[in-house]
Amino acid sequence: MDLETQIGRIGVLPYVAIGVVSGLFAAMFGIGGGIVIVPLLILITKMPARMAAATSLATLILTSLMGVIRYSGSGHIDWVAAIVIGTPAILGVLIGIRFQKRLPSEWLILGFGLFVVVIGLKLVFTL
């Protein structure tokens, strides 16, 4: 059984739930997407870490697109700024993926865990 069939076997519901939770958090805290999707994919669907990160990026295409559609015309989006920070980020994402390839998955999960804890501490203590 290949990986996709194995993951597909758990059904649609966990993915719906993970999506709803990430959308909830995005609307409530302005932090959405990946920081919620990646750990839940690893913990609930038992997806391998690299696949969880890759699939999260694919989900973010949709969610950020929907967000931009929602805000477009409201004057909240500064397109020049988006290009100034978004263009170097394309370079960053390609370097990040190259680096991720060489990293054993335990180290990847450890790194992500530390990253999540730092964000968590920031939210708990800075308001």
Binding site: G33, I35, A53, V84, G86, A89, G92, V93, I97, F99
Partner: peptide, 17 residues
Amino acid sequence: GVAAGLLAGLFGVGGGI
């Protein structure tokens, strides 16, 4: 921008953080 992209590539977060 580069830092946000690195996090995106490594961990699958968008970089909004």
